[in-house]
């Protein structure tokens, strides 16, 4: 128990300690000096904090909007991606093409995707969710497909020797086996999803959300600190979500090699 507690302490403490040192160096102007950057190009943490406080409750409402868009898109995109992976596993000869189609969609840059989705959806939120969903599909599909198919060689033989029906094989073997990959995909998609939500907000009809404010402020010389404050908020949100997913993963995947 104490070893576990110690382990947890280091996994939070270490990056935190490094973070504190980094922020201190940054505040002291070391980062700016090292890169030859002005405090407009890379505002100091104190400037960013002041800008954040100045925005007040607006930050919370903007963050909520972006969070809702990216989470809704994440669920839909991961859902479709996983379904395609299941399809591709059940009918490998015919289903695998769906993976190619999904990953081809990933080659449409978010900027173009956002403009297309703006045409499709009259609601700004709808088009944001669609963008995030499309971006998340392929990562989930490819990862889940691997998880559903990379089985331990003896496991299938064992089920076969029990004459288990295909459904059982799916439920008891393939789906659990895919879980680590699903978590990997969700973790990648958390970041991609949040990022694509931000970018689609650059072009969204709404004048709210983290992305809208980041774009607007970054274009003005006297508001860059506010832009950075919003980037910090977006990054913090992603990290919190990431930690939540990691904790869930630890709980769900106790049996797996990577967590033993």
């Amino acid at each position: 128990m104490s070893a576990k507690a110690k382990n947890r302490a280091t996994s939070i403490g270490l990056p935190l300690a490094v973070g504190v040192v980094l922020v201190l160096l940054w505040q002291m102007g070391v980062l700016n000096a090292a890169g030859g950057l002005t405090t407009m190009q890379l505002p100091l943490p104190s400037d960013i904090s002041v800008a954040l406080v100045e925005k007040g409750t607006r930050v919370i409402s903007d963050a909520t909007i972006t969070l809702v868009a990216s989470l809704a898109g994440l669920f839909i995109g991961c859902g479709i991606g996983y379904l395609c992976a299941v399809l591709a596993t059940m009918a490998p000869r015919w289903g695998r093409g769906s993976l190619t189609v999904l990953s081809a969609l990933n080659a449409v840059p978010i900027v173009a995707l956002a403009c297309i989705m703006n045409r499709w959806f009259s609601s700004a939120m709808g088009s944001k969710i669609a963008v995030v969903a499309i971006v998340c599909m392929a990562t989930m599909a490819i990862n889940a497909y691997r998880g559903l198919n990379d089985l331990q060689p003896f496991a299938r033989d064992l089920l076969k020797s029990y004459a288990a029906p295909r459904n059982t094989e799916f439920l008891k073997l393939r789906i659990p086996n895919s879980l680590p990959n699903v978590f990997t995909a969700v973790k990648i998609n958390l970041v991609n999803g949040m990022m694509s939500a931000l970018i689609s907000e650059y072009f969204s009809k709404d004048t709210v959300g983290l992305g809208f404010t980041i774009k607007t402020c970054m274009k003005m010389g006297n508001q860059k600190a506010t832009g950075w404050a919003y980037i910090v908020v977006a990054a913090l949100l992603s990290i919190v979500l990431y930690i939540v997913v990691t904790l869930v993963e630890k709980r769900v995947l106790r049996w797996h090699a990577s967590h033993r």
């Binding site: 403009c115 703006n118 009259s122 072009f203 969204s204 009809k205 709404d206 004048t207 809208f212």
Partner: peptide, 16 residues
């Protein structure tokens, strides 16, 4: 109510 325009004039042509 202020609305953000993207690169195009679609929103205006579309009566949005």
């Amino acid at each position: 109510s202020l609305v953000q325009q993207d690169f195009t004039m679609n929103a205006f042509n579309n009566n949005e």
